[in-house]
Design a protein around this nucleic acid. Structure first.
Lengths: 222, 222, 222, 222
DNA sequence: AATGAATGAGGGTTCATTCAT
DNA sequence: TATGAATGAACCCTCATTCAT
């Protein structure tokens, strides 16, 4: 018996040929990642079932395990990827801000808000209250701490920052503050104008109370 | 007619008073609460099974349900009781601190640290990252927000606090900062001296950088 | 320490003396029977818990087992007692009705309705659809069958009853009919007048279609 | 492009048609239905566990829930399906019997016996004493009542049926009679010849005592 | 690679029954 | 006798994961 296929790709789909699996495989994987991100953001790791993710990704339940060892592996990948992106953008923003610490703080804050708006789900997973996320890499926040702490140390040492701040404590405080405010704001950005958020967070950074030269986004100014 | 009893407690037992069984019942309940608190603090709501709690409390699995409708009821009770205690102590500390806002902030911070040391597990449950806890009372933190926000508004209105802080945003920031730092510190208080924590948190409160009239602790006074 | 009791019976209650336990014991037992009857009628054997029965009887859970081996023993006792009463009253009614079979049928029917009104709960337990009740004595109905069947046989043999009725089958049919109609009627007696029920059931008895002398209750007529 | 398959069924498998898995799924479902029917007939809804059903169907415990929401859903399906079949066959029998009410009664009775022999378990579930079954559709019997009652009304109105029957009461009586006798007979059909059952039930129908023109069976005709 | 039916361990919960007081 | 807290077996149900097709 002979059956006609109108194209190679149709055949791929219908009979499972191995000729061009890479593209399809990557696509499926991507869809699982997306589905997982959305669901985890909404319900948390344990409330989401692998079957749910598969369904939302439009694949069969078993397919999930062709792409990820288990549910936690998918979760981990989402968390780490998001974190990686966050660090990269924060570093870039810091570098572009030049030497002025105030401008750097402001730039980083603005960048976080921008990123958060783009990837609401990822933000909820990263910074939301989810014990499982925390259990993954000790604490997601801890990835951000060293940078913050060393900058604070420099600032205090240089006499610019206040002397009675303990750098480690202050670092914990700032990271918590930023992540919380960003998570809260992005949940409904109409509550408070973006500029107010940036101003407030910048102000709360030590030395942030000093007269700022910039008043507005990341617009370059002299 | 007179009947001799050798003691009051014997009489309780022999005449069917409710105190004897009640005491036992209360004790079991208390042990379940304690066991639950410890386990939830370590593993979170969903990772703990009712059987685990019962075992740790030294009772049979079914006994759990004689005292709590289900696992979540126990969890809720722990959360609400801890929250109640926290609010009460913060209110008392605020009242005792008198009119000086700086002293009040410092007093509240010190009180939180003291409470946290006494009830480490409760702190982890309250402030830790646990989606389930959050789902209970919308957000545990939100219980603390209104007070913080209104104090900030007053402070800003009175000209004492900085003008470019958005009260709502700043309230989110402060609460996040406090809860996070307290949770972190109490995990291993030897890392940083208590006074450094108090100083840092107080300083980060707007206007906190101003010369403080210290009220307690081992800070040097002038 | 001495405690005053105002009477012996008070002491009995309060300290559990053995002096006059019989009355109390019988009363407790009776209350458990009543509670059980009401609950079983409403919910069936398995849906009722022993604790429920005890609570409704106003005694502690454990007390139940001082009076009945287990839940089923209580159930059995209720069923058998009710059945005994039913047979006794049917027999009496039959005897009092004299020789006329029509009058006897009518009298038995009236008696069943009267009994059913008095003991609605018992009726529901006996005749209601409860597999457990059936499992007790093969089938509750079977207790009534032999009498019905033998009367039918006589009637047919004497030429009075129709020839093409199979006595065993007809007995099944009549018993089912009676129990069902009684159970249905007693659930809401306002739906149909009592006389209509009696007339209908009497009529459906073989030979019942013959001109009846009586038209109304159990009024004696010649 | 043409691809060769060695058979149609191979194609089904290789191209992901739904028929192959669907057939398997349907088979499992069917086996669960059968197993459930047999067990429910013997022990009633609540005495049967979902695990028992699964075991008897030869599948794992969890498989049950891939096919039915819960135990009651399976039960409901069994009851409703059986009821549907019963009504359909009764209606057909009635229609085929033509205008003669006697013939119709006889045809319906014969049909019920035939159906009952084919599906003993279903009969026990439908007509057996099972509170749970009753709770499903108020009362299974009630599905049959309206038809019976309206036929009785017509019969009485036309002067054919006896005047002193209350149609509602009589309908209750007849349905109870039929269901009970059928259930009883089918439990051991050797006790009484089928024709005796049919004759008896037909006779008991009002007007049934009148000379009948028989339509089938081995009854002697004139 | 994909499918989706099946598996079975494990958690939540109920409740008949016991037993120390 | 009565009490009522405690027990623990048994059930319902979910879901991560496997595997034949």
């Amino acid at each position: 018996m002979w059956v006609k296929f109108s194209s190679l790709s149709e055949m791929n789909v219908r009979s499972g040929s191995k000729t061009a699996p890479a593209r399809s495989r990557a696509a499926t994987r991507k869809r699982l990642l997306t589905a997982g991100t959305e669901l985890f953001a909404r319900q948390g790791l344990h409330a989401v079932t692998s079957a749910q993710i598969a369904r939302r990704a439009g694949v069969a339940a078993g397919t999930f395990y062709l792409h990820f060892k288990d549910k936690e592996a998918l979760f981990r990948e989402i968390v780490f990827e998001a974190l990686e992106q966050l660090r990269e953008r924060l570093d870039r923003a810091t570098a572009e801000a030049g030497d002025d610490p105030q401008r750097a703080v402001r730039a980083r804050t603005a960048e976080m808000l921008a990123l958060a708006e783009k990837h609401r789900s990822a933000v909820r997973i990263l910074f939301g209250r989810d014990r499982e996320a925390a259990d993954l890499g000790e604490d997601v926040l801890s990835h951000l701490l060293p940078g913050v702490e060393s900058r604070l140390r420099e600032s205090i040492a240089s006499g610019e920052g206040p002397k009675d701040l303990h750098p480690t404590v202050a670092a914990q405080a700032f990271v918590a503050m930023w992540t919380r405010v960003v998570t809260w704001w992005v949940e409904d950005p109409r509550r408070v104008p973006r500029e107010a958020v940036i101003d407030t967070l910048t102000h709360l950074y030590p030395g942030g109370a000093a007269p700022r030269r910039v008043r507005g986004g990341n617009t370059k100014q002299t």
